[in-house]
Amino acid sequence: MRAGNLLEVNGLKKYFPVQRSLASRLFGQRPGWLKAVDGVDLFIREGETLGLVGESGSGKSTLGRTVVGLYEATAGEVRFEGRPVKELSPQERKSFRQKVQMIFQNPYSSLNPRKTVRQILDVPLRMRGVPGPERPSEMEELLERVGLSRWHLNQYPHQLSGGQRQRIGIARALAVHPRFIVADEPVSALDVSVQAQIINLLMDLQEQFRLTYLFIAHDINVVHHISNRIAVMYLGRVVEIAGSEELLTAPRHPYTKALISAIPEISKIRRRERILLEGTIPSPLNPPPGCCFQTRCPEKKDPVCTQIVPTLKDVGGDHFVACHLY
């Protein structure tokens, strides 16, 4: 593990068992596995934001949930502050729980509808060991930090707007003083105008509290704005990681190229040539052999792409690509 890395993920896999019908089991079919995350390696440096993009079903949310421990990994390891999370003692696990938090995609289901904002924020403060008399002032400070006021303390989630709810979700995550936050599509359920506010809030908070983010989104524009580096996921694998500017201006992987060419642009002068991909993402129940992208790749080379799984290769300048072309 290199110094300066807060989090490292090595060969992480998360498979979900798939129930087959009784009939197919009787005919000897083995239960299937949905390979949501299929061998991911990455690291996140202290204080940076790693953006994670990919289309729906690419496994980016599953990766985020496995990293924070909501899902148990099928294989591979997650190292936090240099130590494998699996080997933490119960006491250390408790402190890991407080150092790692999550912001959720849906601000409507991430807050308990039967609890007031006060009750929602009370739990993390209690978990951090803040004594009862000090909690009200802590709550007010938290709310102020996220751009709300103590006036909201007695409200129920259904009385708040989507943006306000997301701010409460952020306040809840901040309340335990985390070092690392996984933001799972925190703005995709919000209006565009509110999206910008939340992104700016997240960036301000990062500066104030020296936070490290894993920022998951399917909108590469949003990710580009907030991230230092971007990882592109496809069918449970990371196909390319590079600095944010580098990835947008000089993508290497054919999938990344197609993804970036699809960003809508207003300027007429700088119109890029669009790369249209054929078909849809294959099912993670039955991924293709070899390179995960071979079924749609415009630059596929037989037989290497259909037989050998490409690994991430350093192509210089902190840029890694999993593709046989390089």
Partner: peptide, 11 residues
Amino acid sequence: KEYVEAARMLG
């Protein structure tokens, strides 16, 4: 639902 996951995240 995510509020249950949030509670799990808080330990």
